[in-house]
Structure formats: structure tokens, C-alpha cells
């Protein structure tokens, strides 16, 4: 049975269409990643699944329960870690966990020992009785995850669990999540901007753009779905747009996008394309600093599916909502 069913969800906020028929399924016990640019609708999807907001149309089920018709059954079955931390900063870590357990219907010894266990598991045993205000970003984020897990949910929603963490804290969080996914036999739905994170954690993933899934599969499948090789050219000066046009027009180049001073292209064969790319750029007098080639990575997959619309979309996303899309 699927732990999460998302079928043709639509939702608009006044004039912004956040979800436009998003559809996917997550199997029980799986870690599923949602990737996509700012404003793509990842958080909105999670908020619908976590019963914070209702869709305009479409259907969604979590742990076999309909999110609109049986919200309380869903709420007992899920843990939700929002994009922006919802911990009570004036309370201690332990108090936060105790209260969360209580509203989930736990009490007494069982609750106390579960909270102790969670603090241990999250590496917060020593900090547990300190007020959260004094926690580091990583500690606070781990506590957020703990709040989602204290009542042993079947399904856990993680909305950008590692955004804002330093690389070390991020790696620690990944280990943590991997351990939890195994130990607690959880189904996890995770949104992220980090390809590396999706690659590392997700069994399957979907790339979302403009409120719809554009492609879905295991990281391996997605990488293999892109034919050829990726060639990256580090440009010497700022004529990126011109370089893109020149390279995209060449034979044997399947697509080309620029990302700052980096020109990413996907080609049928690196050995044949690199000389022609270099000579075409040289003919235009565009300087080149470095060239690398590799098999398509998840980055390339992401750019392939979102790249061309990326610039426009990002603008729109920012206009609609300046940055952090925490529940408001």
C-alpha cells in the first residue's frame, strides 16, 4: 500500500497558482524527495499533506486516510518538520518534546522515557534541560525533527531539513535521518534544494516545477534518462548569454544553460564536442578558463528539467513571496 497518495492537487493563493495538478505516490517505508526551484509548490504540497491547509481540488491520502475528510486521523499518523523552525525558543528541549507528546495523546512514564530516548537519539541529551534560545542552528533543527518523531508517526514530512546548516551539521543530519528511516521504519517525504541530499537520502524523487511534477524516478533512473555526457565550461569573462547561444547552436550539443560564469551543456560525445565548443568560443573571442566533463549528475537532471524556465520562475516565486515560505 502507498503511504502517501497525491492525486491532481490544485491550490491557489489569490492570484498565485501554487499547485497545478501535482500527482505522485510514496510507498510505505520509502524516502521520497521533492526537488524544485523556489516557489515550485513543494512546501504547499507538504502543508496540504500535513493538514495545515486545504487543497482547492484533487485528493490526497496519508497512511490510508483522506487529508480533508479525516484530518485528525492523519495528524496522529504524521510528524511535520516545517521549513522554518517551530520550536518554542523560551522553553527547554525537553519541555518542547513533552508538550508535543502530550498533544499527541501520550502521557506519564511512557512519554517521559520516550522524550529521554529522543534527546539521546538526537544528541541533545546534555542540552535537553537548557532553553532552546541558546541552541545552535543544528541543534535547533535536530529538535525540530525530534518534535516530528516523538509520537512514533508512520509518515514524516521534512520541509528543507538542512537549509541553513553548515556542511558538517548537514552531513550529521543526513546520518541521523538515514538511521531514523531504518530504525523507526518510517516513510519520509523530504523537500530540498540540495541535489546531493536527494541523491544521498532519497530512494525515489520527483522534480516539481510550477506546481506540477515534471519527472519522477530513482536518482539512478533520472541520471540515466539523460543521454550523453555533461560538459562544463568555466568562462573567462562575462559574455555568458552569448556563449550559451553559440554553444547551443553546435552540432552534437543537446542543450546548454548558463549558471553564473559556468556554461553547462549536455553533449552526445565529449570527445567530439569539446574541440568544436572550444573553437567556436575562440572564434567569437570568448575566453575559457577550464573545461570538465562527467556523466550526467542529478544537477544536470535538475537543470535539464527546470533550467530553461528557471530564471523566469525564480523571479515569479520571489515576487509572490519574499523568500521563506513558512506557514503564515
Amino acid at each position: 500500500m502507498d503511504a502517501i497518495v497525491v492525486d491532481e492537487l490544485r491550490k491557489r493563493y489569490s492570484d498565485v497558482r501554487a499547485l497545478e495538478g501535482i500527482t505522485f505516490g510514496v510507498r510505505t517505508g520509502e524516502v521520497f524527495g521533492l526537488l524544485g526551484p523556489n516557489g515550485a509548490g513543494k512546501s504547499t504540497t507538504v502543508k496540504v499533506l500535513a493538514t495545515l491547509t486545504k487543497p482547492d481540488s484533487g485528493r490526497a491520502e496519508v497512511a490510508g486516510r483522506d487529508v480533508v475528510r479525516e484530518p485528525n486521523a492523519v495528524r496522529r499518523a504524521i510528524g511535520y518538520v516545517p521549513q522554518s523552525s517551530g520550536v518554542d525558543r523560551d522553553a527547554t528541549g525537553r519541555e518542547n518534546l513533552m508538550l508535543q507528546g502530550r498533544v499527541q495523546g501520550m502521557s506519564g512514564r511512557a512519554l517521559e522515557s520516550r522524550v529521554g530516548e529522543m534527546l539521546e537519539l538526537l544528541g541533545l541529551a546534555e542540552a535537553g534541560d537548557r532553553v532552546v534560545r541558546g541552541y545552535s542552528g543544528g541543534m535547533k533543527r535536530r529538535l525540530d525533527v525530534g518534535l516530528g518523531l516523538v509520537h512514533r508517526p508512520q509518515v514524516l514530512f521534512l520541509d528543507e531539513p538542512t537549509t541553513g546548516l553548515d556542511p558538517e551539521a548537514r552531513a550529521a543530519m543526513w546520518d541521523e535521518l538515514e538511521r531514523l528511516a531504518e530504525g523507526e521504519s518510517l516513510t519520509i517525504l523530504l523537500t530540498t534544494h540540495y541535489m546531493e541530499e536527494a541523491d544521498e537520502l532519497a530512494d525515489r524523487l520527483a522534480i516539481v516545477s510550477r506546481g506540477r511534477v515534471v519527472v519522477e524516478g530513482t536518482p539512478e533512473e533520472l541520471k540515466q534518462s539523460l543521454r550523453g555526457e555533461a560538459v562544463e565550461v568555466e568562462l573567462g569573462d562575462g559574455r555568458a548569454a552569448e556563449a550559451e547561444a553559440v554553444v547551443a547552436a553546435l552540432d552534437g550539443v543537446l542543450e546548454a544553460t548558463v549558471d553564473g560564469r559556468r556554461l553547462r551543456s549536455r553533449v552526445a560525445s565529449g570527445a567530439r564536442a569539446i574541440p568544436s565548443i572550444l573553437s567556436a568560443l575562440e572564434a567569437k573571442g570568448i575566453g575559457v578558463e577550464a573545461v570538465t566533463t562527467h556523466r550526467p549528475s542529478l544537477d544536470d537532471v535538475y537543470l535539464h528539467y527546470t533550467g530553461r524556465e528557471f530564471a523566469a520562475e525564480d523571479e515569479q516565486g520571489r515576487a509572490g513571496d519574499s523568500g521563506g515560505n513558512g506557514p503564515r
Partner: peptide
């Protein structure tokens, strides 16, 4: 409570 997202977090629980 709303600004700090403490109250919205509770909305995903049966509170």
C-alpha cells in the same frame, strides 16, 4: 506565537 511559527506547528497535530 504566529511569527515564530510555534502555533502553526501545532496545527499539524490533533491539538
Amino acid at each position: 506565537g504566529l511569527d515564530r511559527d510555534v502555533l502553526p506547528r501545532f496545527l499539524a497535530t490533533p491539538v
